[in-house]
C-alpha cells in the first residue's frame, strides 16, 4: 500500500508545490476516509462536510474524501477506530477538544490523541459571555461582584462539566473568588432558551449562535473568550482586557492520523490542508461561522495536545474533578 502510494506520489510530484526535496512523496490512490464522532448534521459532521465541499470547490485533493461516522462515547468510538486503523494511510480523524479532555476524566476512554499521529490544527472556536438584553449587568465585573456578594444569585447555563464553558467558569471563579451556579443542558438551544426565558443569568456562547440573537435585540455580549477581539464584536472586551488575568481555554478542531503514520503521509495531509486554509472558499467559511484561523502543522499540533492536556488537567484538578490520566 505504502509503496504503491509512493509510486503514484512520484508521478504527482509536479502537482504538489512547496515540498522540500529531502521528503519522499506520497499521494493516496483511493478515497480518503474522514472519521467524525457525531451523527449526520451535528457539529463535527457539519464541519467535515463544509470542509469537503471547500476542498472539492478548490479542487485540491487528488482523490475523493468521504465522511465516515463513528458515533458514540463522546468521541471515544471514533478515537478507538483511529487507533485500530494503524498502518492505514487513507484514514484521518476530525478531532475536537473533547478528544483531548474527556479521556482525562473517563477511565473507559482508552484511546487518547497522544497515541495518534497529529496532522494539523485548523481552527479555534471563540466564544462570548452573553446576558439577556434587559439584564441589569453591564459588564463582566458587575456580574462577578454580584456573585461575590451572594453566591446563590448568579446562574450560568452550559454543557457538561468538561465543556469549555464549565472550564472557563472554574478558571474565573478561582481567579476572582466569586461563586455561581452552573446548570447543565445537553443542547445549545436549551442553554439559550434558559437564558432568554430568564431562568439563568448568563452563558458562554459561540459567536455564530449569538450573532442573530444580539442583532435581534434578545441578547448582549459582555466579554469575549478569546485572545484578541473578534471583528464581529469590536466593542466587546476580551476577558483579559476586562481585567481578568486568566489563561485562554481554546476550543480547537483539526485532524489526527492513526498511530505511527509515516512522515511522508503526514506531509501530504499538511500540504492539502495548508492549501485549503489559504483558499478563499475556506476563508469565507471561517468568516461566516466566526471561526478563528489557527493552522498548525503536525509537530506544533502535537505540542498543542500536550499543552492543552496539561492546562485541562490543572483546571480539572483545581475544580475537584477526578482526573484518571
Amino acid at each position: 500500500m505504502k509503496r504503491r502510494g509512493f509510486l503514484v506520489g512520484a508521478a504527482a510530484l509536479t502537482v504538489l508545490s512547496g515540498v522540500g526535496p529531502a521528503e519522499a512523496q506520497y499521494t493516496p490512490s483511493r478515497p480518503i476516509d474522514l472519521v467524525v464522532h457525531s451523527g449526520p448534521g451535528a457539529g463535527p459532521d457539519a464541519f467535515g462536510r463544509a470542509l469537503i465541499a471547500a476542498i472539492e470547490a478548490e479542487k485540491i485533493s487528488p482523490v475523493r474524501i468521504q465522511i465516515n461516522h463513528k458515533i458514540g462515547g463522546g468521541g471515544a468510538t471514533a478515537a478507538s477506530y483511529i487507533i485500530e486503523k494503524k498502518g492505514d494511510t487513507n484514514t484521518i480523524g476530525l478531532f475536537t477538544s473533547a478528544w483531548i479532555a474527556n479521556p482525562l476524566v473517563q477511565a473507559d476512554m482508552k484511546a487518547t490523541v497522544k497515541e495518534m499521529t497529529p496532522v494539523v490544527r485548523l481552527v479555534i472556536e471563540p466564544a462570548v459571555f452573553a446576558v439577556r438584553a434587559d439584564s441589569p449587568y453591564k459588564s463582566m465585573q458587575e456580574i462577578v461582584d454580584a456573585a461575590k456578594k451572594d453566591p446563590t444569585k448568579i446562574k450560568q447555563s452550559g454543557g457538561s462539566p468538561l465543556a469549555r464553558d464549565a472550564i472557563v467558569r472554574h478558571v474565573l471563579m478561582s481567579n476572582t473568588g466569586a461563586r455561581w451556579a452552573f446548570v447543565s443542558f445537553p443542547t445549545g438551544s436549551e442553554r439559550i432558551a434558559a437564558l432568554l426565558g430568564g431562568h439563568v443569568d448568563m452563558m458562554i456562547i459561540e459567536p455564530s449562535e449569538a450573532g442573530e440573537l444580539i442583532r435581534g435585540g434578545q441578547m448582549r455580549a459582555l466579554a469575549q473568550v478569546s485572545d484578541k477581539r473578534l471583528s464581529t464584536f469590536p466593542n466587546t472586551p476580551t476577558l483579559r482586557e476586562a481585567g481578568f488575568n486568566v489563561p485562554n481555554v481554546p476550543q480547537a478542531r483539526g485532524f489526527v492520523a492513526p498511530p505511527d503514520t509515516p512522515r511522508e503521509v503526514i506531509a501530504f495531509y499538511e500540504q492539502l490542508f495548508e492549501k485549503l486554509v489559504k483558499s478563499p472558499t475556506w476563508q469565507k467559511y471561517l468568516t461566516d461561522n466566526q471561526f478563528e484561523d489557527a493552522f498548525l502543522k503536525s509537530e506544533e499540533t502535537g505540542k498543542f495536545f500536550d499543552q492543552y492536556s496539561d492546562l485541562m488537567r490543572g483546571i480539572l484538578t483545581g475544580a475537584g474533578i477526578r482526573v484518571v490520566r
Binding site: G72, G74, A76, T77, D108
Partner: peptide, 12 residues
Amino acid sequence: ARFTFGQTALLN
C-alpha cells in the same frame, strides 16, 4: 459513565 461495564459502545 453509568452502567456501561467498561463497554465503550455504551458510553453514549
